[in-house]
């Protein structure tokens, strides 16, 4: 039993999209599918040439935030969305009725419809694949060339992610909504 989370040193992101490719390969996500499971958001450069604010441009890798108080789980009428023993927010496709309420309720737009099963899918921190095989890394983390992502057990004080969160300042997305995300953006 662990409490998995992920820290993102997002300023290191070079938008190479290797994480998206690795995720698709590892978890069998449809190729070409836009913004499925994980994506990299691009903040445009502000200002007009030649007065461009170059530092305003940044990349923000994103995905399901694996909230401790997940709105998508609360609104699910059949409990198809559930927290597993590692605190990972997951979907049981057998119970999903495709009412799309979770898609509307998720503040992070992290859910999408898998066209093969016609159920709602999302990132599950590679729980069906790498974690199930006993590994303790995710595909996106393992492939990242600039080591943006650090995945680990938040309850283990010696884990790399716990050390990072103790020593680096960080923020969470839309934390004012009280969702308690387990994705942390390092500053």
């Amino acid at each position: 039993m662990a409490r998995y989370g992920m820290a993102l040193d997002y300023k290191n992101c070079i938008n190479c999209k290797a994480c998206e490719v690795a995720c698709k390969e590892e978890n069998g996500i449809l190729m070409g599918a836009d913004k499925h499971r994980i994506w990299v958001g691009v903040k445009e450069i502000k200002g007009e040439y030649p007065l461009l604010d170059i530092v305003s441009s940044s990349f923000e890798p994103s995905q399901c935030q694996h909230c401790e108080s997940a709105p998508c789980q609360e609104v699910c009428p059949t409990n198809a969305t559930y927290y597993d023993e590692n605190g990972v927010v997951r979907v049981d496709p057998d119970k999903c009725i495709l009412c799309s309420y979770c898609m509307n309720a998720c503040p992070y737009d992290a859910r999408y419809v898998d066209d093969r099963t016609m159920t709602v899918d999302k990132c599950n921190f590679c729980s069906d694949t790498r974690l199930a095989r006993g590994e303790t890394t995710t595909a996106c983390q393992a492939t990242c060339p600039t080591k943006v992502r650090t995945f680990g057990d938040l309850d283990d004080p010696e884990s790399e992610i716990s050390v990072l969160l103790r020593t680096r300042e960080h923020f969470s997305l839309k934390s004012h909504l009280g969702t308690k995300p387990k994705l942390f953006y390092l500053t």
């Binding site: 609360e74 609104v75 699910c76 009428p77 059949t78 409990n79 198809a80 057998d94 119970k95 999903c96 009725i97 495709l98 009412c99 309420y101 016609m118 159920t119």
Partner: peptide
């Protein structure tokens, strides 16, 4: 998307917070 599944799991695993 799955009305029959809805009838089954509305009863078997009801989401009371929904």
């Amino acid at each position: 998307g799955h009305p029959v599944t809805m009838l089954i799991y509305n009863v078997l695993t009801p989401g009371f917070t929904s």
